[in-house]
Design a protein around this nucleic acid. Structure first.
Lengths: 107, 107
DNA sequence: CGACAATTTCGATCGGCGTCGTACAATGGA
DNA sequence: TCCATTGTACGACGCCGATCGAAATTGTCG
């Protein structure tokens, strides 16, 4: 069989498809906020398994799906692992200061 | 009878009680986001009745309560009307750029 | 005092979302 | 080839929150 990319074709919204409400909803969850914080702190792409979160794998998948659909993170497939990274450029362009404000939060 | 402050003593979190997650949750709702946008655009305090939202009055009360508890707005009682305003200073101090980023959102 | 206006409170409903467990798919090595 | 690893898909469950209507509270005005 030909090597037909069989894995789910990760869908990402274009920059102009990102809405502020979607981003806010995505960030308004402790687990997802933790993921975003880790991605921002690492300043590089991280695999699902490299994330420290207090939930099951399937739940991580769910949260990453939401973050991706909201346009907060991107996913890159490599083998069986999927690397995620923050869409910092797009977010900064659309909502300047938002992400920094969130990350700068003392709590 | 003494003027026993019978009206609910509007509770507001101190600045250091405000959490970024609380603020994000508060903003992650279309109705509340609309309220915040109107307050920001008006740049002054507005009464509940002066807000243009597609919900019932009792629901407005509910949303304003959440916005208040999150530390996003303050309420000032005057007669039977309650005036609400953005806590812009506190929010800017805690999460610099967050509010501006949200308000600058094209959508 | 009595009627009206502005909001809150209460109770109820209803949909959505976070969570898990299990089963499944794909990749890469022993 | 077989298996371990990595992540996704699916179904189910429980809870929180958005919404409404009706009743209650408070203040103002005639």
């Amino acid at each position: 069989m030909a090597k037909t990319a069989a894995l789910p074709p990760i869908v990402h919204p274009a920059q102009d498809e990102i809405t502020v409400e979607g981003v806010l909803r995505a960030l308004a969850d402790p687990v997802r906020l933790g993921i975003v914080r880790q991605l921002a702190a690492a300043d590089r792409e991280l695999a699902c398994g490299a994330l420290t979160v207090p939930v099951t794998k399937s739940t991580i998948t769910h949260h990453l799906s939401i973050l991706r659909q909201a346009g907060v993170v991107t996913g890159r497939q490599e083998g069986t692992t999927r690397f995620n990274s923050l869409r910092r450029n797009d977010l900064d362009a659309l909502f300047p200061g938002l992400l920094d404000g969130v990350l700068a939060a003392p709590r």
